[in-house]
Nucleic acid binder design. Structure first.
Lengths: 136, 136
DNA sequence: GTATCTGCAAAACATTTGCAATTCT
DNA sequence: AGAATTGCAAATGTTTTGCAGATAC
């Protein structure tokens, strides 16, 4: 995603594309795993020495409000952010630490207790060993 | 679960059953939703006016280490604790706010990306409207 | 020139740590 | 008495808030 297309994308979602907001969003889009404010800060401060964490918090808050970024419920104390809007699950490898996205099968059904419930969001977070680490 | 059986249970797991630890564990067992430290504190302080949050943190840390309590990854900033050890999913009703446990069907499979991965933990957290709230 | 955005500093929370006082055996 | 536990107070870490200066249109 180019800076121009990000600019357009932010405009299209009623978010003024400031230099900082473009950089924060750009970083999110290019991140494989879903970074925390701290992670975004450590990366962006390299090229924007005046950047403050407050601005990252502000930007992310705006993105979440305008629904172009989702808060990811990964374990731990910090919040994580995800620019991939299509529903997907997360898998964390306990050995190498890598985070993988995967598609959630629409066939998935859950037993009795909640079978009549109206499910609107599915948050699925798996942990285990990835295939790379298994074959080692 | 009676106080006596909790005492036995803690002993069996190599945890000295102090008055405070019994109360914290007892509260967890009797809680429908999986409370945070703050929630446990607000409830127990009613009957134990000298109780401190540190003691609740200490107790829960011990319980998690001895594997009689699990940390639940519910959204938000606080940690939540669950004394139900069998694997289960959580459903939060957006209308009434109630939290439901449900059994996760073993048939559940996830598509390609992670199909060869060795899954050790499944954290499933759904949100939507519960049947009570639908029929209103 | 006015409205918005940035970023510092302080406040507000959640959690952890150090330690002295208390409790249990 | 000796060992573990409790709970206060302070420290740490994350997120939010207030506000003054900078920026954009």
């Amino acid at each position: 995603m180019t800076v121009e297309s990000i600019t357009d994308f932010l405009n299209a979602h009623d978010i003024k594309p400031s230099y900082q907001r473009i950089k924060v969003y750009e970083h999110l889009v290019h991140s494989i795993d879903h970074p925390s404010v701290e992670m975004i800060y450590r990366e962006l401060i390299k090229t924007i020495p005046t950047l403050s964490k407050t601005t990252i918090y502000n930007s992310l808050k705006t993105f979440v409000e305008k629904e172009i970024v989702k808060v990811v419920t990964i374990d731990g104390n910090e919040m994580h952010y995800d620019s991939l809007l299509e529903e997907h699950g997360h898998f964390r490898c306990k050995k190498c630490g890598k985070l993988f996205n995967f598609h959630i099968d629409d066939k998935i059904s859950f037993t009795e207790e909640v079978s009549n419930f109206q499910v609107e969001e599915r948050n699925i977070y798996l942990k285990g060993i990835c295939d790379q680490c298994i074959s080692k």
